[in-house]
Amino acid sequence: MPPKVNLEKCDGCKAEQEPLCEQICPGDLMTLNPETKKAYCRSLRDCWDCMSCVKSCPQGAIETRLPYQIGYYQAKLIPLMGTNRITWTCIDLNGKVERFSFKTRND
């Protein structure tokens, strides 16, 4: 189940013409549920786990979960986007935490 949307955090990008995750997904997979006005991935099987939606969400509402067939529950990888930097926090299935921070653009 690749992108998992936290329904508490997702505000449906109310202020935008189109939700940011929906704008960006290279596979046209993210969209809003017309009833709840929250985002969801319309076809989990087609997701590339490129994490573009995760990086784009202003609420930090999307988490990439690998398909269970590929990776065990419940590791996490969370990006934090800065202007010229990205910081990733990775937690493995035993709870071990690693942090990586690097430049994404020259200043």
Partner: peptide, 9 residues
């Protein structure tokens, strides 16, 4: 990036 998640998983 998700490969790093894979290793963690």
């Amino acid at each position: 990036p998700a490969f790093v998640l894979f290793l963690a998983a």
